[in-house]
Design a protein around this nucleic acid. Structure first.
Lengths: 193, 193
DNA sequence: ACGGTATGAATGAATG
DNA sequence: CATTCATTCATACCGT
């Protein structure tokens, strides 16, 4: 897995890194070698989560033996790894329960995939509050319109209201949910917000 | 990383993966049904761009009626959809009708709000040897569990003196631990078990 | 069979 | 530390 799964992500795009590092590494973005990842992972597994500046420097120095690397890469690596690890731990696998799933009332379209039942526990989704953006013009022009409330209420199937329910799973939902917008009962369909 | 890939179901023996369905659907990757895509697209169209965790879970639960799906799929779907839309939008916007006036938009939203980020400054480049000379008390920066001993002090490589000059790169935007009179307990040599 | 394209998944890099 | 953006990798799928 991880890098081990293949270990060929070495993309040598000779795009003038100018760096002058003889390794012909791509400059755009650090591409860790398998060895580097291995070591980093090992350190992480050992319990290191937020290395100090000194540690970061040392680590990157050592890792530079395997290829181009900068301290900030190490820094980011740990940040990301930690964050994603946690994120992963907080997934709620819901579709594992096969109640009456014979959902084949689909229309006769092209190809229909019957791939099911498999417990691929992986990361899940991040959480955040409603970020009904405030039209702050960033350097991007997306998020054109965030409807105040996406009221679609796409009632497509026998909705199962599971508002604040937490299955006996390991819902690690550390709810930072301060207060949802005082949603009274909230009909919980596909109408969010 | 551990969280890297998912447990691919390369061996669709009898577990999930459809168990020899005629379509030979591979389990490795979520393949949304047309209904799922339809709903997702509808939601997107209605303005939803970055669903919160709650929303993601609700959506995926609802969509599971149509077939196997997990929260992460929904998460990724929105991420990708948003990103690609932006990317496409960008391609079209590039040089498209720049009001031939060359607006001198001198000011950009360049955040020069960096102030106390100097710590990462030096981090940008690997230093010489590891100068493990600092003594200090213990102040673990490790999150929770800190293996009493994480070090094996396994010298992997010849501690070369690699001096990578740091280019005028941005400095890390982040204040590392303010005072570090004390250095981490680790004696920082790369080590792994 | 390929080759291109659409898109799911992963992750480096930021920013607040 | 949480969340988001961008880029890339890996596949599924479709056309020729």
């Amino acid at each position: 897995m991880d890098e081990g799964m293949s270990g060929f992500c070495i993309k040598a795009s000779a795009a003038g890194c100018g760096g002058g590092n003889g390794t012909g590494t791509k400059c755009g973005r650090w591409n860790p070698t398998t060895e580097q990842v291995k070591v980093l992972t090992e350190l992480f597994r050992s319990g290191l989560r937020t290395p100090s500046t000194d540690q970061i420097q040392k680590i990157s120095t050592q890792l530079s033996f395997y290829g181009k690397i900068e301290s900030k890469n190490v820094f980011y690596w740990f940040q990301n790894h930690k964050a994603r690890e946690r994120q992963k731990r907080r997934k709620v696998s819901i579709s594992v329960h096969d109640d009456h799933h014979n959902h084949n009332h689909d229309l006769h379209h092209h190809h229909q995939h019957k791939d099911f039942i498999r417990r691929m526990d992986k990361i899940s989704s991040p959480k955040h509050f409603l970020e009904v953006n405030h039209h702050h013009h960033h350097h991007q022009v997306y998020d054109h319109h965030q409807p105040e409330k996406v009221m679609e209420t796409l009632q497509l199937f026998p909705l199962n209201s599971f508002e604040e329910y937490s299955e006996p799973e390991k819902l690690m939902i550390r709810s930072m949910h301060a207060n949802h917008d005082h949603h009274p009962p909230l009909d919980l369909r596909l109408s969010f917000l």
